[in-house]
Structure formats: C-alpha cells, structure tokens
C-alpha cells in the first residue's frame, strides 16, 4: 500500500532523511518511531506530497506521489503534527469544506460529516468554533478531517502529543478501531502507544532506518538465547555451582543480593530445568521469570548501535 524506496531529502546541505526504504502492506498498522528530529515528519510530508524527496520514490496504492499527486491525496487521510485548522470556522462547516474538496456532494456530504463527527465523538461540538475547542477536541477535529471520505490510508503524525492521559487513551482507542479498516502509519516517540496499537515497527534515527520488524519479533526472545531473572535464597557460591550444572546454562550473573540473571540456550524446557535443579539443591526459588525485551530496550539498543557506528 505504501512503498518508499531510497527516499532522501536535503534541506540545504543537511540530509533530513537519507535512503529511507520501507513498505506497508494493505491493512497493516505500522508504528513509525524515532527520537525528536529523526526525520519522521519529513518522511510523512514526502508521503503526503507536502514536500518532495531530493532522491528516491514514494508510492501509495501504486501511485507515485510526484507523478500522480491528486490520486495519492485522494487515498490518504493526513493528520499533521501541529494539527493546523482554520480556527475561525465552526466544526461542522470546516468538515463540510474538507468533504467538498474530497469530492462529496449534497446529502452524501452531510452524511459523511455526520459519520466522522460521530466516530470522533464530536457530534455535540458540531456548532462550536474550532479556535475555542480544547486541544483534545481540536485533535479530534484533525482526525475527523483525515477520516472524511474514508481514505484507505491514514497517516497520523504524533496524534497524542500534548493531550491529557484520558484523552490519550481515547485517541488511542480510536486509532485501534480505525486500524480494522484502514492502513495506518502512526508516527510517534511514545513507545507504549506503539506497543498497544501497532503490529510492526519501523525505527528511524538521524535520517535513516535502524530497525524494522514485527512487534512480536522485536519484543520477544531474539531466538538464539533466553534470559531469566530469578530471586534465589541461599549461599551464592552454592547456587552458582548448582546452576552451572544445569544443562544449557551459559552464564550466571548476580544483579543484586539474591537476584540472579541467567542466560541459557533457547530451550523450551529451560524454566522447568532451572527450577527443578534449584529446588533439589534446597535453594528457595522465590521468583523466576523470563526477561522479554520491552520496546524501550529495542529502541535504545537500535539507536545506541546507530550512534556507536557513527562515533
């Protein structure tokens, strides 16, 4: 649905993004992650036709954004980061205007405006002036205008920035619902958001992509080893000897007093083997859990590796 190939954008001498390539299948929900200033917004602006790439191509639904801008824009609902709106207009009129531009006429237009207002919880605000709305409601208006005409692709640039916790939850739920019928490219630097909403993640740092994988792969075991955290009672040397005897244990490290980190082969039975061995040796095992990588770990690792390369 969305295909970027070697997209590079220079602002003067500075490359905002360089050689960015990734693709999004129809119906996927992709998290587009990166620290502030990594090139997220620039990439999205190239996709939506607000700016052009210096090199490389971007295609949406098979249409090149440079050669067929109108076809692309018809298929994309875009919520820019700053949520720019005509503040003097009232909500219903503004959405009506967007619907008109997107080619909806007469009854269809009225119906569509009603639908998106309903969907975004704006129905009771239809007659309010946009400039007088709270930030959360303005965000909804921004989302509503992106939804008008039911475009197959939604590009949302940091949709929850600056909202209060309850509004963030509401907007996230809204996005989760949208994910069922749209291809969504969600840019953010808030990681739990991605973990909750997205199936796949693309991480960008300093203008190029540093990681791209499914959420399961990124957050799960990396495949070649398993790592356990355990709270074990007893003498440290004895515990080390016991653990070293267990088949498949590669490394034992002491994190704090009584807290061990055990690295093992990627064997399914490792948990059982460890517990049995420890209990047989009369060590009290209080807590044994596998360590899964959080998105934060992945993110910091990917970005750290990238900056390490450059240094």
């Amino acid at each position: 649905m969305i295909v970027l190939t070697g997209v590079t954008k220079y602002y003067g001498q500075i490359a905002a993004v360089e050689g960015v390539s990734f693709s999004v299948e129809a119906g996927e929900v992709i998290g587009f992650l990166g620290p502030n200033g990594a090139g997220k917004t620039t990439t999205l602006r190239i996709l939506t036709g607000f700016t052009t790439a210096s090199r490389g191509t971007a295609k949406i639904a098979g249409f090149d954004v440079n050669d067929h801008p109108i076809e692309v824009k018809r298929r994309v609902g875009y919520l820019p980061e700053s949520v720019p709106l005509y503040r003097e207009m009232i909500v219903r009129k503004f959405l009506g205007y967007v619907a008109e531009i997107k080619g909806l006429q007469g009854k269809k237009r009225v119906h569509e405006v009603g639908r998106v207002m309903e969907r975004c919880g704006l129905s009771h605000m239809a007659g309010r002036t946009i400039g007088n709305l709270s930030k959360g409601y303005r965000q909804r208006v921004g989302l509503a205008q992106a939804l008008i005409g039911n475009p197959p692709v939604l590009i949302l640039d940091e949709p929850t920035v600056g909202l209060d916790p309850r509004q963030i939850v509401e907007i996230r739920d809204m996005i989760k619902n949208l994910a069922q019928e749209h291809t969504v490219l969600l840019s953010t630097h808030i990681l739990p958001e991605v973990a909750m909403v997205c199936e796949r993640v693309v991480i960008i740092n300093r203008g190029h992509i540093v990681a791209e994988d499914s959420m399961a792969n990124l957050a799960g075991v990396s495949g070649d080893k398993r790592v356990f955290d355990a709270d074990i009672l007893g003498d440290e040397t004895a515990i080390r000897i016991t653990l070293a005897d267990v088949h498949g244990v590669r490394d034992v490290a002491v994190e704090a007093k009584g807290r061990y980190r055990i690295t093992t082969d990627p064997d399914e039975r490792m948990g059982v083997l460890l517990t049995t061995a420890l209990v047989r040796a009369n060590h009290g095992v209080e807590n044994l859990r596998e360590r899964t990588r959080t998105l934060e770990d992945v993110f910091i690792e990917a970005i750290g590796a990238d900056e390490g390369d450059a240094a």
């Binding site: 602006r45 939506t48 036709g49 607000f50 109108i70 824009k73 018809r74 994309v76 875009y78 820019p80 700053s82 720019p84 709106l85 005509y86 503040r87 967007v98 531009i101 997107k102 080619g103 205008q145």
Partner: peptide
C-alpha cells in the same frame, strides 16, 4: 503562518 498550508496542500487540490 498558521500551518494550515499543510492541510491545503495535502488535500486533493490542484
């Protein structure tokens, strides 16, 4: 100045 150009120019308008 208000940033609405980003909407104007990403809507399907020539």
């Amino acid at each position: 100045n208000r940033g609405t150009a980003e909407l104007l120019l990403t809507h399907p308008l020539r």
